[in-house]
């Protein structure tokens, strides 16, 4: 049991190491940092400036901060979800290595988690830089004083675990489909962008969409991240929810995501073996 755990930790480390090599090894460190910062920064700026233009001077600073922080930290979601699906696709069809990793005794899931986490490392560098730029150039109310560090740490950890398990579900589905599966992570992350209050409060959504939004762990994660970064500011729709209860709900939903993810992933692997897809090559 201990040996198996150790082996899985190694697979995770190797996945992270390889993922980092793939992510960062194509250029020099300065250019790499510029690259990882520019993409989410551009997204956040587009959204924030759109808001500024539409609202002219009537918009509140609170809503600007809501959009800017939401769009910035959401980069982590996209990276982690896409990361694992892409790892399946890349290893299977471009590198031709998924079959060799699959027949090794260590856990394929641990390895894929590592690959996903490697993607996030770039974003973990990028998000603080983007927030700092937002504070300097757009009066974003984020400062050392406004950050609740313990809450940020807990929310970030829970978020990474929760998104990783969600990413594993997508990786499992990618295992069962052809090359287009690579866009699955992107598509799901895009869809969740609307439902989870990433750029606008869930209270503006129609009733049925709000119901879905309140069942999604990402909604609570984004709320927790905003509170941790913006001096405890409570987002619309969550005014009556205390910080402790918010984190508890997030932890519970993370556990549920894990409980759904693991059997689903095992089933997906079984189906992939049944259909002979672990070494499929669709001329990607």
């Amino acid at each position: 049991m201990i040996n198996r755990f150790r082996q899985n930790v190694r697979a995770f480390k190797v996945g992270t190491w390889l993922g980092w090599q793939i992510e960062s090894n194509w250029t020099n460190p300065v250019l790499y940092v510029l690259f990882v910062v520019s993409r989410p920064l551009a997204s956040a700026l587009i959204l924030a400036l759109m808001y500024k233009v539409i609202a002219h001077s009537g918009g509140s600073d609170d809503l600007f901060a809501y959009i800017f922080v939401g769009a910035s930290v959401y980069a982590l979601v996209g990276q982690l979800m896409e990361g694992m699906s892409w790892a399946v696709l890349e290893d299977r069809e471009r590198m031709g290595m998924l079959k060799y990793i699959s027949l090794a005794p260590s856990s394929l899931y641990a390895y894929l988690l590592g690959r996903g986490v490697a993607k996030v490392l770039g974003s973990l560098i990028a998000v603080p830089i983007i927030l700092a730029l937002g504070a300097v150039f757009f009066d974003l109310p984020v400062s050392w004083q406004s950050i609740n560090l313990p809450m940020l740490t807990v929310a970030l950890l829970l978020g990474i675990v929760m998104i990783s398990f969600a990413g594993l579900i997508l990786a499992g589905i990618t295992m069962m489909v052809a090359r287009h599966g690579g866009f699955l992570g992107m598509a799901v992350a895009g869809a969740l962008f609307i439902f989870t209050g990433a750029i606008f409060p869930i209270t503006v959504l129609p009733g049925w969409m709000q119901t879905i939004a309140r069942g999604l762990p990402l909604t609570y994660w984004l709320e927790a991240m905003r509170r941790a970064l913006l001096d405890g500011a409570r987002g619309p729709g969550f005014e009556s929810l205390g910080d402790g209860r918010l984190l508890l709900i997030l932890a519970g939903l993370t556990l549920i995501t894990a409980l759904i993810s693991l059997p689903l992933e095992a089933w997906a692997e079984h189906r992939a073996k049944e259909k002979g897809l672990l070494d499929m090559n669709t001329a990607y």
Binding site: L18, Q21, I22, N25, W26, G96, M97, K99, Y100, L103
Partner: peptide, 15 residues
């Protein structure tokens, strides 16, 4: 077990 397949160019090229 372990396995080696021939006639393929597998491997992580950047490593």
């Amino acid at each position: 077990i372990n396995m080696v397949s021939g006639g393929e160019s597998s491997g992580y090229g950047l490593l």
